[in-house]
Design a protein around this nucleic acid. Structure first.
Lengths: 380, 380
DNA sequence: CCGGAGGCCGTAAGCGCTTACCAGTAAGCG
DNA sequence: CGCTTACTGGTAAGCGCTTACGGCCTCCGG
């Protein structure tokens, strides 16, 4: 039982395949009568166009590929990587954006030592690629970018990539420091740094240093973790054992480490935020469920995905040159680990503003309409 | 600058396009010399086969589609739906499995009131579809299944679907009740039920009822939530206000509600598990980060995705008839909210067993080898 | 020395669709 | 009433690839 083709429709409707194609694609130059007849037959036969043939003929796949890294096939360990959840959110945003422009999303994840064949193959199946974080090597990235539209997401300026979409580590961190120093009056800051190899970690740390200095606060100690919760635990224990007085606030350069820190402090019955305040960065989902809720800086992961796809679309269509680099704003998320009063969860601080941001400026009117529909949905 | 085609390779290598094709696909009947020459040219030109053309000619796309539901575009609300994280894990598993068999994964999410056009279109672009939960209506499902290989994932027996992959709610719940009653000796159980409309909620609740009766424990109260954390909070407050004595253990029919319950109990300074034990179901990521860690039943979300894809593959290839229905085992995850001693996070109870399960029985040898490689990766 | 058997590779058809080009028809005009 | 014009819809080419089929050449046995 072969799937019906336009030949079947043409025969049944008594027209040529060209007419069928025109009717299906709502092209001009067809009488309403003919169009309706063809459409009725299509409906009757349950016709679905063969995307492969369409793509070949049309010269475009209307598909965008997303390349992500898989840290490990083992969930228990993978959770230690913020990137896992981050990537899921990026994919969600990318899918949303793709659907809005009528594109499909093809997914490939690159395993640690498995080479980037999967990404290579996607070049022949998509109209463009979104490469997340550092899913492939610099050389691979250059190879891909040389022959396909590619946007690098959350990746600082890889060689060869035309388009880059990333977050503003600086402004978010600055706001957080300001909140701690100006609003809460904390003067003594301890910092749990991330790995040297991470540009994010470095950017955040440097900003903490500068902002603190500018606002008259002191960095009273720094410890280095590897972005994992376990490393946060280790740091917290080290601090405890040192016997030195606690800093007034411990700024962790990501949420995972903050989670580990909170865990140890809770076990040692050190009150947060009364004795020591704790902050993170990323706003992973877990953060709001901790007690106290973690004050952090939100990374707009979904927006990153959405923006990457829409700017790729612009680039492919060539309507107007997309910006080479797009920097999405981060957002201070105040919960109670910094010393502020707790909020109930369901009044999430950023409810309703989720889908705003630069993506809107790219696709203009249609986008806004879709957004409006999205918001209406919340009310219903 | 057009991408090179086999015509370009053929010309440059001085052979016909048929020979190029044979060389690229490692077909027999080619001299090693010719093959190497073609391959060298392909490499030099950075050739990537056009997947569209290949698919059209080959008669198969080597792509599998995954259809999921998007509850809302708003993250703050979406988090209230366990399905969001669940779906991410399913996708991850599906991708892993797809990659193993050399297939690509196409993603489509269906928005609440947006129709299922996206799923329909996938019929013409994939070799099979995985429909998660109840992403499309029963009628839509029947339509899809009538003309395309479809597997229903975590969906109780939709009309028309040839293949079903779901979890064993009964056994997991039974084990949990047994743990509470036999191991901890709890006799008085309160139950926070899920929505009537959810087959999962119903199956779990009925199993609690039966197992409790069989083991000589009493259900001393039931409350009904809607699977959201907020509804868990409401239930916990209701219980508090009632003034009645607390049950020894509160079994929540999913983790989200348990999270809400724990939040209220913590605010009211009721000790968990000393005064009342609490359990969940699903093992969402958040659960291990709560204090106390939530005792729950793990849903093998990744395995569901992986199994769905591999069984779809079997069905498409028709090598041997895949089972019509596959039921994956759930797993009791004991943390401290039931009264057991706390475990450190990084010794996750199920570390290393992540990828075992029925999926292995489907693809046999090759699968096992791949699995072994996956585990080796953890050591490295 | 000839016929047959393989090995190797080229020729060409065709996958299902889009679209440039052209043909036929009816309407409009002088 | 003949010719132009505007519509409508048909014809056919071609997107890049796979593969059935067949041809040529070499090698072998009789």
């Amino acid at each position: 039982m072969r799937a019906p083709t336009i030949y079947d429709l043409a025969e049944k409707a008594g027209v040529s395949i060209a007419t069928v194609s025109r009717a299906l694609n709502a092209k001009a130059g067809l009488s309403a009568e003919t169009r309706d007849r063809v459409l009725a037959v299509a409906d009757e036969l349950g016709y679905v166009p063969n995307g492969t043939a369409r793509g070949l003929s049309y010269g475009a796949t209307e598909t965008i590929g997303v390349v992500v890294a898989t840290r490990s096939t083992n969930a228990a360990l993978a959770e230690e990587h913020e990137s896992l959840l981050f990537v899921d959110a990026v994919i969600r945003g990318a899918e949303r954006s793709a659907q809005r422009i009528g594109y499909a999303l093809l997914l490939a994840s690159i395993r640690p030592r498995s080479g980037w064949e999967a990404a290579k193959r996607m070049v022949g199946r998509t109209d463009g690629l979104v490469v997340v974080d550092r899913a492939v090597s610099e050389e691979a990235m250059a190879w891909l970018a040389a022959r396909h539209p590619v946007v690098a997401l959350a990746w600082d300026s890889p060689k060869g990539a035309e388009l880059v979409v990333r977050i503003d580590n600086v402004e978010g961190t600055r706001q957080l420091v300001e909140h701690l120093v100006v609003h809460h009056g904390y003067r003594e800051i301890g910092v749990v740094r991330g790995p040297e190899s991470s540009p994010d970690a470095t950017a955040r740390w440097q900003t903490v240093e500068r902002s603190a200095a500018a606002l008259g606060a002191r960095i009273v100690g720094t410890w280095t973790g590897d972005f994992s919760a376990a490393s946060g635990e280790r740091v917290a224990r080290t601090i405890g054992r040192s016997g030195a007085p606690l800093p007034r606030v411990l700024m962790c350069m990501n949420d995972q480490m903050a989670v580990g820190v909170l865990k140890v402090l809770s076990a040692q019955e050190i009150a947060v935020p009364q004795e020591v305040a704790v902050t993170g960065f990323d706003d992973i989902i877990v953060s709001r469920y901790l007690s106290p809720g973690l004050t952090t800086v939100r990374q707009p992961a979904e927006e990153l995905g959405a923006t990457a796809v829409s700017s790729l679309f612009e680039a492919v269509r060539g309507t107007h040159l997309a910006l080479r680099e797009m920097v999405l704003p981060t957002e201070l998320v105040v919960r109670s680990s910094c010393g502020c009063a707790p909020q109930p969860w369901f009044d999430a601080p950023h409810a309703g503003v989720e889908t705003a941001g630069p993506a809107d400026t790219l696709t203009g009117g249609a986008h806004s309409v879709a957004e409006a529909a999205g918001l209406a949905e919340l009310a219903g």
